[in-house]
Structures are given as C-alpha cells and as structure tokens.
C-alpha cells in the first residue's frame, strides 16, 4: 500500500473548502454592511450618531435573537415559522403574570420565556414524533400561539404594568446621568442597552456552543445527513427537538424584551417577524438545505436588515418601498450565494 494506489485529489484541492466559503460569505455580508453604513452616512446627516446607533442596536436585537434561533433550527434541517406568534404569546403571558397574578417582574418574564420554550418543545415533538414536516408543524403553532395570545387578552393590549416591567427593554448598563444646573438630567453616556447586551451574550454563547460542543456538532451532522447521523449513533430526534426548544426560548425572550420596551403587552406584536429571522439567517449564509450556517453571519444579516430599515427611514423612503428593497436584497444575497456554490 503505497502512493499511487489512490488517485490524486487535485480537482478537490483546487476548490474552496466549505470553511473558506463560509468565511467569504461572512465577509461578503460584512462588506455590504459597511457599504450600507457608508452610503447612509452620506445621504443622511443624522444617521451616524450615537443616538441613532443605539436605536439601530435596539431594532436589530429582536431580529438577531430570533435569527439565532432560526439559524440553529435551519442548520439542523428544519424551519420555524412560529416565532413571531410565540413571542407575542410569551410577552402577553409575562404581562398577565404581573398584572393578574401579581408575580414579581423577573419571575413573570421567566414564565413568559418558559411558555416560549414549551411552544418550541411542542414544535420539536410534532416534528420528531408525529413526523410532520417542520413547515406544517410550525405553521400550526404560528396560528395556535397567536390565537392563544389574542384569547388571553381579549385582543386588547395589556398596559399599566409598572416601571419595573420596562426595565429590561429600556434600561442600560453603565448609563451615566448627571443632574444639570437647570435641574434637568443630562445624559453623559447612554450606556449599553440591556437588550443589546443580552443579544451579544447569547450570540457568543450559541456560536461557541455550535462550534465547540458535542451537541453543536450533532446539529450540523443532523442537518448535513440525518440518516448518516442516526447510523452514527446521534440521537437525531433529541437534537432536532432541542433546536426548536432553543428557538422557542429565544422567541419568548424576544417577546419579553419587546413588550418591556413598550411597557405594554400587545397580542398583535411580532407579526411576520419569523420572516425577518429567516431572512437574517439566509443573508448571513445559512443554507435552507441544512448543515451549513454560522451565528456571526446571522448577526451580520440582522444588522443588514436593521440598518437598511433605519437608513431608508431616515432618508424618508416609505415603508412600502422598504419592503420592496429588503425583498430584493434577500433575493440578491441568496442568488450570489448560490452562484458561489455552483460548480
């Protein structure tokens, strides 16, 4: 058994490895992000300011949190259409726990996140045990969760939740405020908003988990080839279920953050957010065929969508036109991605 037994792998060597492709994809998205920032800075004076940066950060948070969940689900070969509804249900439950049951805010929010997790668990079990296609399973959950949120609230917003309820969405770490000579508070440094902090921590944790943990490796393996993973002893059903649970938990958290920002629970919040989540993952290079995707890419994808919205707003582009533009961006990015992967 010596050299010459096997054919040379020259053809393979010339092709880009998947890791290199991921890298290119990430940088391509990053490049378009930088281009967007540059373009909007030129067209709108108010775009490049700390205040606007802050509001972009907050806007992006919800897309990114949902996008992280969507990425993990999609890498494992699934799809989760229910997150927009689940976040509404979770936020409503948290608010009702405060208002009706008088629970302390942190406990109420944990209950809300827990409801999100349960919705995810149901999604996962329907997919793995009843063997329904993920599209259908989560479509069902999308309607059920929205219906529950409307039912629980009688389709009315829940308000009068108290200041503590708004802390998560509106508070910030390291916020420096000085009471000025005129008696009005003066903000020296707006601080890092809690939602942004939360997003950063969760993004890092999930990225680390995907890259380094056994479970993360199994997620990629299941998405790449579920049968091969099963025949290698991977508990495919458990792995898939866990991805939906994670997506549900993150939807629950997003719901709490969003409702907290408004200090009002809206059962109609989050309609179509699942599509933003999926779009951010796809723009970030996650393949809907499964087995491929990164969290860093998704976060960049979320920023692309957030900045596009914000910048277009500042330039006075109508909401309708914005939808058209974002739709085109999604088509363009995925098309470029496919061109790159085609051989």
């Amino acid at each position: 058994m010596s050299a010459g037994l096997n054919p040379p792998v020259t053809a393979a060597r010339r092709r880009l490895s998947d890791r290199q492709k991921d890298l290119i994809q990430t940088f391509a998205a990053l490049g378009s992000l930088v281009a967007l920032v540059a373009a909007f800075s030129l067209t709108s004076g108010a775009f490049l300011s700390l205040g606007n940066g802050m509001s972009i950060g907050l806007q992006v948070t919800s897309i990114a949190l949902l996008g992280i969940g969507a990425t993990v689900v999609i890498i494992a070969g699934g799809i989760d259409l229910s997150v927009g509804s689940v976040l509404a249900l979770a936020g409503v439950v948290a608010a009702l726990c405060v208002k009706e049951l008088g629970l302390p805010v942190p406990l109420a929010m944990l209950a809300g996140i827990g409801v999100g997790g349960v919705c995810g668990l149901v999604n996962g079990l329907v997919v793995t045990r009843l063997k329904l296609p993920p599209f259908i399973a989560t479509l069902g959950m999308m309607l059920i969760a929205r219906g529950l949120a409307l039912q629980l609230t009688g389709a009315r917003a829940v308000s009068g939740l108290g200041e503590a309820f708004g802390e998560l969405g509106n508070g910030a770490l390291l916020r420096l405020v000085r009471v000025g000579e005129d008696g009005f508070p003066e903000v020296l440094f707006p601080g890092i908003p809690y939602p942004v902090l939360l997003m950063a921590v969760i993004a890092l944790a999930v990225a680390f988990g995907l890259r380094r943990s056994v479970l993360g490796r199994h997620v990629y393996a299941v998405g790449s080839n579920a049968e091969a993973a099963r025949l290698s002893g991977v508990a495919v059903g458990r792995v898939v279920t866990l991805t939906y649970v994670l997506s549900g938990l993150l939807a629950g958290l997003t719901g709490c953050v969003l409702m907290s920002r408004l200090v009002t629970a809206q059962p109609n919040e989050g309609v179509m957010y699942e599509l933003d989540a999926i779009a951010s993952a796809v723009i970030g290079g996650t393949s809907l065929a499964g087995g491929v995707g990164t969290i860093s890419g998704t976060v960049i994808g979320a920023f692309v969508i957030g900045i596009l919205r914000n910048g277009l707003n500042m330039n006075g582009v109508s909401a309708f036109t914005q939808q058209i533009i974002i739709g085109l961006v999604i088509l363009l990015t995925v098309w470029i991605d496919q061109l790159r992967n085609r051989r």
Binding site: D18, V214, A221
Partner: peptide, 30 residues
C-alpha cells in the same frame, strides 16, 4: 453518501462523529 457520511462536513468531523464523547470534556465541549 446517503447513509454513511455527513458529506458537507469535513474529514475530521466525520471521523469523530460516532465517538465525540471521547474528545470532549465533561461539559460536552470538544
């Protein structure tokens, strides 16, 4: 291709797929 390999994944990930526990610590980190 259909049942033995996770074809999109690299050589090393495929070699260790059935026994990741052996190269991971107690927390499940590789």
């Amino acid at each position: 291709k259909a049942q033995g390999l996770a074809v999109k994944m690299p050589v090393d990930a495929n070699l260790t797929l059935a026994n990741l526990g052996a190269v991971a610590n107690r927390l499940g980190l590789i």
